[in-house]
Design a binder for these strands. Structure first.
Length: 805
RNA sequence: GCGAGAGUGGCGGAACUGGCAGACGCACCGGUCUUAGGAGCCGGCGGUUUUAACCAUAGGGGUUCAAGUCCCCUCUCUCGCACCA
């Protein structure tokens, strides 16, 4: 190699990898399978984003590293091409997504992904919009339905007026649509749901055992949100029972009123004629509020009295029933007992409406002024007085009621069922048919896929009905059971369903008669390593965990968690600011790759910050990295026996550099500390350059260490160093632990904790051996004059600290 | 409000179980080569003062022979959840 020209080198190796199928894995014969998964991208018209590349390169390094370690690494790629993003883009540009998507995919793969040097086995590509794929997405839906994990329900849903569709709770971020940031409103609609709550407890508990990034687990824990307490039966004045959920059954004696959610169905039955107009007005007002209004911070409590009374089961006292929007229909039973003395929200409400506040737990200052939520003993609670409230008191009161069938211990989760229907066009049609005679009929498996028809007008109309409803030939069908006229479901499913199972498909793309093959799945799943962005913590990552449990529950797979390990990478910013079109600081990866090469670009992305934390992309960084690779090439390929420096390094020194670099780079890659791994490579190159060291073994080792980061260049160097096979078949270099220690160590000599001298000494000397040397040291002796030595601290091979007075 | 994480030179960032703070790189400064340098190579680069010290890891206290690292308090930022009973 004369001079390092990345464009030539990269083109050469790209075509060689392709012609020799270097990245293709023998899925059946693999001996040490390693499934290295990255989050498949949405093929946008704008092209790949640096964020995508940052994620992919970090993952690819793991794939290549494992390959060097001797694993059969399967690193597939696909396209998450259904969904509103594509549809909205097509709408805006007056095109059809079916026409745009294939072009985008082509561009992503051919002119972007393939140029980055990812070790992708393209023979297993997946495209969620192809009928061969979404046939099985629909199969998942039917499977879930048949197993009671999918159901249709009418109720309040999140509606995005801009996207003109409903959204799942997970897709509403701070009251706004995850896609378009419009304010989400509530609507009453019939929708399809998946019973994500069915596995809420397992999904939460299993997190403790998962090898995942802590922050991802934390986000899921918060989202699933378990609270333990009791369901307590109260009665209306006429004796009709109803129940409420509370985490503090110990405070039952302090319940001074009840609150129902405004949407609660029982409100109509209990409201008294005098209060009815006020209740109606309040409910209307609440219905008009958006989620943002309703959740607004520090919002003053509102509510009205229903006129009805309830009986407290512990003491038969009569307490008023109110409705207020601080009680949510979707949680617990949609009704609460209010204990203003020991709950801040109830306290605020009670103060505003002049409701009584009764202290039942001791320890607070003045519960009339402020709710006390801390620990204490029960008071004003009959025979339970004196018991420690949150422990013994809670148990005793609940058990007393439970004996009368008036309470039971329960657990509630914040998690809601996954609303999966979408009133949009660009998605997999929900495979359901409604028949007057047979009711809900899932489309039989032999009739799948339900093909998405090509509609010229696919614009959502905001009526709450999908555009597909306008296609009569699609909408009107015969019932598969009885043959009578029936109507097809026209909603499509949430595109998070497509992505919830794609990694089962990759190893099984050769099978057209099943979603995934048992043998392949046994061999390759669960995924060994999944690297991706944490923004999917409670979306894709939660949905796919749930679906995995569902598949397991229904007997299709024998594992319960889809990913053995998940690592969340950081976010990258551009020159200190978040990347955005309006700031004009979007980075176009293609420009850098064209000018400096993919290897320099990859390495800079990995060097600019800690991979798990994110980094700051600075102009000039890629160029500097190209400069480093130039120096590396020069150092590796320098002619042997060139002029050596005046003081050539000893054999031991060279060995130290070589071995300690191998050790450190391996450890750093394993913990995703790519920036420090690259720094190590730089140090080794600096050592070689500075000392004019040229040795075949150092060059070869350096090349192999470089390979995961800069694969094209590593191949080229490996060839130049006289090898004919791929560097990725050469194995990861081994190191000698003993040689990782410096031949000489520099002892730090401190006096009273301050550095006063240094001594270069052989490794492994004892305290007695070095003591005279320390005392003689002129820099040290000066600080000892006229002082008494009180204490000596000796840390082998590191430091001596003399404490004097 | 609750929970988690973070705060280190002009900048991006290092520092594993407490043991030389600032690895590695960018920017900058100086030198060299050159018709030229926005190329290459060599050197310097936290601050105050200069033979030698002292001060520095958001701020304040503490533990220790020794603290960026451990403990307590305060401030700031980022993220997650948020009227979830």
């Amino acid at each position: 190699m004369a001079k390092y020209d990345p464009s030539k080198v990269e083109a050469k190796w790209r075509s060689r990898w392709e012609s020799q199928a270097t990245d293709k894995v023998d899925l059946v014969g693999a001996k040490k399978p390693f499934y290295n998964l990255m989050m498949f991208p949405y093929p946008s018209a704008e092209g790949l984003h640096v964020g995508n590349l940052f994620a992919f390169v970090g993952s690819d390094i793991q794939g290549r590293y494992h390959r060097l370690l001797g694993y059969d690494v399967f690193e597939p790629m696909g396209f998450d091409a259904f969904g509103m993003h594509s549809e909205n883009f097509a709408l805006k540009n007056n095109r059809h997504p079916a026409e745009l998507i294939p072009k985008n995919i082509e561009r992503f793969r051919e002119s972007q992904l393939k140029k980055v040097g990812l070790m992708i086995d393209w023979s297993h590509q997946v495209d969620t919009t192809s009928p061969e794929y979404y046939r099985w997405t629909q199969w998942m839906f039917v499977m879930l339905y048949k197993n009671g994990l999918a159901y249709r329900k009418t109720g309040p849903v999140n509606w995005c007026p801009s996207c003109k569709t409903v959204l799942a709770a997970e897709q509403v971020i701070d009251g706004e649509c995850e896609r378009c940031q419009s304010e989400v409103t509530k609507k009453e609609m019939a929708q399809w749901y998946f019973k994500t709550t069915a596995f809420a407890g397992e999904l939460l508990d299993e997190l403790d055992r998962l090898d995942w990034s802590e922050r991802t687990k934390l986000a899921q824990r918060n989202w699933i949100g378990r609270s333990q307490g009791a369901e307590v039966v109260f009665k209306f004045a006429d004796g009709t029972p109803f129940s409420v959920f509370t985490t503090r059954p110990d405070t039952l004696y302090g319940a001074t009123y009840m609150v129902f959610s405004p949407e609660h169905p029982l409100v109509d039955q209990i409201v008294t004629p005098e209060q009815a107009p006020f209740v109606k007005a309040y409910r209307d007002e609440v219905a008009r509020l958006t989620e943002i209004d309703r959740q607004a911070e520090n919002r003053e409590k509102t509510g009205v009295f229903t006129g009805a009374m309830a009986v407290n089961p512990v003491n038969d006292s009569l307490i008023p029933i109110w409705i207020a929007d601080y009680v949510l229909m979707g949680y617990g039973t949609g009704a609460i007992m209010a204990v203003p003395a020991h709950d801040a929200r109830d306290h605020e409400f009670a103060v505003k409406f002049g409701l009584p506040i009764i202290e039942v737990v001791s320890g607070g200052e003045d519960v009339q002024k402020q709710a006390y939520t801390g620990d204490g003993d029960l008071v004003n609670s009959d025979r339970f007085n004196g018991l420690e409230a949150k422990t013994k008191g809670l148990t005793a009161i609940t058990e007393m009621l439970a004996a009368k069938n008036l309470a039971k211990f329960t657990t509630n989760y914040r998690l809601r069922d996954w609303c999966v229907s979408r009133q949009r066009y660009w998605g997999p049609p929900i495979p359901i048919i409604y028949c007057d005679k047979c009711g809900i009929v899932p489309v039989p498996e032999k009739d799948l896929p339900v093909m998405l028809p090509t509609l010229s007008d696919y614009r959502p109309d905001g009526t709450g009905r999908s555009p597909l409803t306008r296609d009569e030939s699609f909408h009107k069908v015969k019932c598969p059971t009885c043959g009578e006229s029936a109507l097809r479901e026209t909603d499509v499913s949430d595109n998070f369903l497509c992505s919830a199972w794609y990694f089962y498909r990759y190893p099984s793309t050769d099978f057209s008669d099943r979603p995934f093959d048992d043998e392949m799945t046994k061999k390759w799943l669960p995924v060994d390593l999944y690297v991706g962005g944490n923004e999917h913590a409670v979306l894709h990552l939660l949905y796919s965990r749930w679906l995995c449990r569902a598949l397991n529950h229904c007997g299709y797979i024998d594992f319960q968690e889809p990913y053995k390990r998940f690592v969340a990478h950081g976010m990258i910013v551009s020159n200190g600011a978040k990347m955005s079109k309006s700031r004009g600081n979007i980075i176009n990866p293609d420009l850098y790759i064209d000018e400096f090469g993919a290897d320099s670009f990859r390495m800079y992305l990995m060097f600019m910050g800690a991979y798990l934390e994110g980094g700051d992309f600075r102009d000039g960084g890629v160029k500097a990295m190209k400069g480093f690779l130039d120096r590396l090439v020069a150092a590796c390929l320098a002619p042997e026996g060139q002029t050596l420096s005046q003081k050539p390094p000893t054999e031991a020194e060279s060995l130290f550099w070589l071995n300690s670099t191998v050790k450190a780079v391996g450890q750093d890659i394993a913990r995703f500390s790519y920036n420090t791994a690259i720094a190590r490579l730089m140090e080794l190159v600096n050592f070689m350059t500075k000392n004019k060291v040229r040795s075949q073994s150092i060059s070869e080792t350096l090349t192999r260490l470089l390979a995961p980061f800069a694969p094209h260049l590593a191949e080229e160097l490996w060839e130049s160093l006289g090898h004919s096979q791929s560097v990725f078949d050469s194995g990861w270099p081994l190191y000698d632990e003993a040689a990782c220690r410096r031949p000489e160590v520099e002892y730090v000599i401190q006096v009273n904790g301050k550095v006063r001298g240094k001594l270069s000494l052989a490794v492994g000397l004892t305290e007695a051996e070095i003591e005279p040397l320390v005392m003689e040291n002129p820099g040290v002796a000066k600080w000892l004059e006229g002082k008494t030595l009180v204490k000596k601290i000796y840390v082998p091979d590191k430091l001596v600290n003399l404490v004097v007075k």
